[in-house]
Amino acid sequence: MDENKQYPLKKVCLICAKGSLEDVYAALVMTNGAVMEGIEAKLFFTFFGLDAITKNRMNSLKTGTLGNPAMRMPGGLPFPSLMGVLPGVEAGVSAMMRNQMEKLDIPPVDEFMELITAGGGEIYACKLAMDMFKLTKEDLSKHVSGVLTIGDFYEKCGGLGTQIIFT
């Protein structure tokens, strides 16, 4: 290949293996961002990431309040780890995060997936993780195009100018 030639990004394939609010949104923003730029985008959810595409869980994802050193109180004061164990704190913090995102016009998870698929992006579920968590296709959001093995997913990730991102 010519070293001086620019090879623009043509396709991004993302793998999201975590189900916390911030991990799922990072994957969604990157996928939608690619679609918006006219870059082909495919997003694969596996392990706890499946929560993001499970109908009765996708719109109530939580952000972890334990073991997160970057967690702050509103106003920037440190967030005492012990507080994170209290009932309702995780739900409250997560509701605040969602609220803040809504203010920035960041949509809820199902609507975000609608934006992605309307622009031609594709969303997939991992077959192995589905079997592990005893989920069926009926449990999944209508925005999921299919249940794939990782091998099937790699097959879709071929071509010059493709990058695979694991979040």
């Binding site: 730029e37 006219g38 609608e114 934006l115 622009g119 031609g120």
Partner: peptide, 11 residues
């Protein structure tokens, strides 16, 4: 959103 992508394809 779908129509918008259809009217101005790509980006």
């Amino acid at each position: 959103v779908k129509e918008f992508y259809g009217l101005f394809p790509g980006a």
